[in-house]
């Protein structure tokens, strides 16, 4: 299926717009019996339409070996996806569930029993207005999204309700994905300035806590300003902050 890869290759790293198609000539492939069937995984932004792959979001085409393609797009509004971890705000306690606002079109529900060590008698200590870090187990277009604070083994694994203090703010989804990538340069640079705790939710919400209020504010402002800076600008800014000259 090198034909397909070569179709994409030209556009990797380029801006594509909704309506762009990648067409493959299937007939030429079928003649060649030596070709094995391979999988191509289409990520967000790409959709299969018969023999073609259509782009439906504008952005930059990205590729990850061996066969993953997706569109890196920029947006502010979050759409729930199964398995993603988000920071939610508890808005109501009704019946057996909490209603949690995650910034999407619907409020998600979080059951009382979905916390580590929670039983029918032992309810988790969560109030209206608290922040929770949870993961989606149901998130599709037909049903109300559901969150849980435990993983499949029943352990909290870092999820749950937040303690007091700290600052919550909102950034765009692109910045959040950049922060969460394994070799995130932004995070590495920020580490060097001063120690702080950070929780990043994939719905664009970030929670920061540092030793003093001033440091918390500094880190929050730095993160928000990283949105549109190139690497050099960012490093220059962080250096200035580290020198205490800003």
């Amino acid at each position: 299926m090198d034909i397909i890869h070569s179709c994409f290759k030209a556009q990797i790293g380029e801006v594509v717009l909704p309506g762009d198609v990648f067409r493959f000539n299937v007939s030429s492939v079928e003649d060649d019996s030596s070709v094995k069937a391979e999988k191509i995984i289409c990520g967000p932004g790409l959709r299969r339409n018969g023999d073609e792959i259509q782009v439906y979001k504008s952005g930059i085409l990205r590729h990850k070996q061996p066969n993953l393609y997706w569109i890196d797009s920029q947006q502010k509004r979050y759409v729930p996806v199964k398995g993603e971890s988000v920071i939610g705000i508890v808005t109501a306690k009704t019946g057996d569930i909490f209603k949690v606002d995650v910034g999407s079109s619907e409020q998600a529900s979080l059951s009382y029993l979905a916390f580590e060590g929670a039983t029918k008698r032992n309810r988790p200590n969560v109030q209206v207005g608290d922040l929770v870090y949870a993961q989606f187990i149901i998130a599709n277009k037909d049903m109300e999204p559901e969150l849980v604070c435990i993983d499949s083994c029943g352990r909290a694994n870092g999820m749950g309700v937040f303690g007091a203090d700290g600052l919550l703010f909102k950034v765009s989804l692109g910045l959040v994905r950049r922060l969460l990538s394994p070799q995130s340069e932004i995070v590495k640079d920020l580490e060097k300035i001063f120690p702080f705790e950070m929780v990043v939710g994939l719905n664009g919400r970030v929670w920061i806590k540092a030793k003093t209020i001033q440091q918390t504010l500094i880190v929050a402002n730095l993160l928000e300003s990283c949105e549109n800076m190139t690497a050099q600008q960012r490093q220059a800014l962080f250096k200035r902050v580290a020198d205490g000259a800003l």
Binding site: L68, W70, L180
Partner: peptide
Amino acid sequence: EKKKDEVMVISDSEEE
């Protein structure tokens, strides 16, 4: 002095 943060890598694909 290193901060503790949750590093969660979740690929952007809609895969399971």
